[in-house]
Design a protein around this nucleic acid. Structure first.
Length: 255
DNA sequence: ATGGCTATGTAGCATAGA
């Protein structure tokens, strides 16, 4: 099974990129974040024509996530019960009992802000929810935009970002607690190029200069991690005209 | 240098993203 996560920063704008990309990559599951549209405006027909079923949790203007799957989606859950804002979707089981969780973690704006506090609370609630989820779904995939660069090597300029939002110690500790549940960062299961990132600021030629952060992740429960054959960041969509500021991440699981 | 882009909602800018 090939599974991908991509913050598309407006599905309306990025739909042509997405449709081209799934033809090239042929993922079995695609988790999208920042749809920036309501469910009624979701381009279901185009995506179904491309061969995918859709589980959608949209929202006007901001946020919004979706899971696309070639295999039938069952028991779709639109949002986490104890998280007030609908930023997340999940579904089960997509392929042979594997449960997929697609998350868009709040950005946090700046350390010390209300949004930052909300982000930490949100992740704590997410952790509690995942603990339950893992206990009944040992084959769990938790992907999305975590808005956290876990280590200094995930940051183009660790000095400049030290203590800043996305890199602060409380955020990294919260991410570490997710791993502490028994989840594995699939990207770090393999040798990777240095300076591998998934997000680059639109400003100041951030992508061309590779001034990026690795904040989009594919986490796997330990049983699935043993079956992971690869994990990589696809830079091609970021090179296109009018790209998302995020690149997709793709992992392959052996059957 | 609190700037620098991009997208949305809405009609000249405000808000958010990361």
């Amino acid at each position: 099974m090939k599974i991908a996560t991509w913050n598309v920063n407006s599905l309306k704008v990025r739909l042509p990129h997405l449709l081209d990309w799934v033809v090239r990559q042929t993922p079995d599951v695609v988790c999208l974040q920042e749809l920036k549209l309501e469910d009624v405006n979701f381009p279901r027909a185009e995506i179904e024509t491309a061969g995918y079923q859709c589980a959608i949790s949209g929202q006007k203007t901001y946020n919004g996530v979706a899971i696309l799957s070639r295999a039938p989606l069952t028991e779709i859950q639109a949002a986490f019960p104890d998280l007030t804002i609908r930023r997340s979707a999940s579904c089960r089981p997509t392929v042979e009992g594997t449960r997929i969780v697609c998350a868009y973690v709040p950005n946090g704006q700046s350390v010390g802000s209300d949004k930052y506090e909300y982000k930490l609370k949100w992740i704590a609630a997410f952790e509690r929810w995942l603990r339950e989820e893992l206990s009944c779904h040992p084959r769990l995939v938790v992907v999305g935009d975590y808005n956290i660069a876990p280590e200094d090597r995930d940051v183009h300029d660790p000095k400049a970002w030290e203590g800043q939002v996305l890199c602060s110690a409380p955020e990294r500790e919260a991410f570490g607690r997710l791993l502490g549940l028994g989840l594995v960062d699939s990207f770090r299961l393999f040798d990777q190029p240095e300076k591998s990132y998934t997000w680059w600021d639109y400003r100041m030629n951030g992508f061309r200069r590779n001034l990026g952060l690795r904040i989009d992740h594919i986490l796997l429960s330990s049983g699935l991690a043993a079956r992971c054959a690869s994990c990589s960041i696809d830079l091609e969509p970021r090179r296109l005209e009018r790209p998302s500021d995020h690149a997709p991440v793709v992992a392959e699981l052996r059957d």
